[in-house]
Design a protein around this nucleic acid. Structure first.
Length: 198
DNA sequence: CTAACGATTCGCT
DNA sequence: GCGAATCGTTAGT
């Protein structure tokens, strides 16, 4: 277990970090089971001047509280009453930025992921989507506020694949954000099949 | 206290 | 392709 240093997440450029996290390995050790996957898709959310972000314009509530703390923690919240969506908080105390992890490529503990997802075979529906990857890795709201330096959840350095071209597009499912829905703050590996949507 | 809604997914047509 | 599922959070009464 070699987690990225906490300072990595203090970076004030959340859009840069969202792109930089592509290709790194997200690992969990939950319920005695080690699982991991390469991050293939992310979205940046900025606490200032971004209406798509839960913490936009200083909207500090019980749910968004953790984003206002220093970066490097897990922000997990329930979406549509069903799905646990996993975010990485970034920036320093008081600046509420976060990065949503939307898809991963399974690496370790595939059998456990299949079991958690109640699937028989490995295909892109196993971990390509913010709700499904959380389920596969065993992430739920009990991890809200956890340090991303382990021991339950952490992120490790890895090398990008040789053909690891990253592309950016608009974010998914945030039409309510007006002009901010047009920002190209979604990143994914161009040649990966482990991406939620194209 | 009450009501509306969502950074989605899955199953059925 | 379309609609239901499902409940915590939020804002308003």
């Amino acid at each position: 277990m070699k987690p990225l240093p906490q300072e990595y997440f203090f970076n004030s450029d959340v859009v840069y970090l969202a792109e930089d996290l592509i290709g790194k390995k997200l690992c969990t050790n939950i319920g005695g089971h080690y699982t991991s996957g390469i991050i293939t898709e992310t979205e940046a959310y900025c606490g200032r001047n971004d209406k798509a972000c839960h913490s936009h314009s200083g909207k500090r509530t019980a749910r968004t509280e953790i984003m206002f703390h220093e970066g490097g923690k897990a922000y997990v919240y329930l979406c549509y009453g069903i799905h646990n969506l996993f975010n990485i908080t970034t920036n320093i105390e008081g600046l509420a930025d976060a990065i949503l992890v939307r898809a991963i490529q399974p690496v370790d503990g595939v059998e456990i992921m299949l079991q958690r997802r109640k699937k028989g075979d490995v295909d892109k529906t196993l971990t390509s989507g913010p709700g499904t990857l959380s389920q596969a890795l065993g992430i739920d709201r009990s991890l809200y506020g956890s340090e991303l330096s382990g021991p339950e959840i952490w992120i490790e350095e890895t090398a990008l694949p040789p053909d690891g071209e990253i592309v950016s597009t608009t974010r998914i499912g945030i039409d309510y954000a007006g002009d901010d829905a047009l920002l190209p703050w979604r990143f994914y590996l161009k040649n990966s099949k482990w991406v939620s949507k194209y």
